[in-house]
């Protein structure tokens, strides 16, 4: 038998399987954005949300009529060219009110969820990462909060603090904190045991570094999904609280309040409830679709197709 030539004698063989070609470096956020744009569904959802947000910010510019400008003779008009969404029982332009309601609904949504996200994620992160008594203490508190039915808890908070937009934000946030804490903790419990976390510890990384560089980014996907779901629910919750008279106070518009008010006329003038309802549905849907897309795009493994391999 002839011996296999020594490595030195091997002609440099091109290895087609080796993915060794250099790739131009691009900033990560630009790459992420590029991929998000390529995901048609998420991109569309993002675009629609962007439009809604722009409209909400510049509501005064877009609204053709003051939201509380009454026109009693022209009340309960069906959609027409001058009032594309019709008018309500006081003759107010529904389109203008939907536009102005956007800023209230989105403000409540973003701020309440943002608050819950920050507080809940921190709690879940510490509870999951440190375990033991930290976990026990933090999660028992969360359990207590979680034990109350969500609406009851919010109502109780609003009853104590009084109705109004900022109190609505706080109430909804308090309801969502334990949810974020639980989702984060569950995710962190899995990631904490990953070998790459141990590997990073083995080179002497501090807990802060482990948490911020490895644990949180890898635990993020379910949190992102939860955020998009919660945003949707927060808009609905604001609607429900306003419906009960605890959230946004009339005559200021919010989608939920309009829905509540329109409900009375549902048989005579469907457009009163329909358009704010649609605004809620579209916004909620877009949040969810964008959340899904974001979760995929933030995962480097999804960015390139997996290279083949038998395992």
């Amino acid at each position: 038998m002839t011996a296999v030539p020594t490595p030195g004698g091997i002609p440099a063989a091109p290895a087609p399987g080796e993915p060794m070609v250099a790739r131009p470096a691009r900033p990560r956020w630009r790459e992420t954005l590029g991929l998000l744009v390529r995901d048609r569904t998420a991109a569309t959802a993002g675009l629609v949300l962007l439009i809604i947000i722009v409209v909400a910010i510049f509501d005064e510019t877009f609204a053709s009529q003051g939201p509380n400008e009454q026109d009693i003779p022209g009340r309960l008009q069906p959609p027409s060219w001058s009032h594309p969404f019709g008018t309500d029982d006081l003759g107010r332009d529904i389109l203008s009110r939907v536009i102005l309601g956007a800023s209230v609904s989105l403000k409540v949504g973003f701020l309440s969820v943002g608050l819950a996200l920050v507080v809940g994620t921190l709690i879940g992160l510490f509870a999951g990462f440190y375990g033991r008594w930290v976990d026990d203490a933090l999660m028992r508190i969360m359990d207590v909060l979680f034990a109350f039915p969500a609406v009851l808890l919010a109502i109780a908070i609003l009853a104590i603090r009084g109705p109004g937009t900022s109190n609505t934000i706080i109430a909804i946030a308090v309801v969502y904190v334990p949810i974020f804490a639980r989702v984060t903790r569950a995710s962190v419990l899995g990631v904490r045991e990953e070998v790459y976390v141990r590997a990073s510890r083995s080179i002497g990384a501090s807990d802060f570094r482990l948490l911020t560089r490895h644990v949180l980014p890898n635990a993020a996907p379910p949190i992102i999904v939860q955020t998009s779901i919660s945003l949707a629910f927060a808009v609905l919750a604001e609607a429900a609280l306003s419906f009960l008279g605890l959230g946004t106070q009339p005559p200021n518009p919010s989608w939920g309040l309009m829905l509540a008010e329109g409900n009375e006329f549902i048989n005579r003038a469907w457009w009163l409830a329909f358009f704010p309802g649609m605004a809620i549905v579209v916004t909620v849907l877009c949040f969810n679709l964008l959340g899904d897309g974001l979760r995929d795009v933030l995962d480097p493994r999804q960015r390139t197709l997996m290279a083949g391999g038998g395992r």
Binding site: P5, P11, A15, P16, G17
Partner: peptide, 28 residues
């Protein structure tokens, strides 16, 4: 040192036209 076969097997979506081992073969 151990003798090694450099490189990796070709991906099954993209097999070489001639001998499958050609890209890595030390005696081709």
């Amino acid at each position: 040192d151990l003798a090694t076969v450099p490189g990796l097997p070709p991906p099954p979506t993209d097999l070489p036209p001639g001998c499958v081992f050609w890209p890595r073969c030390p005696v081709r």
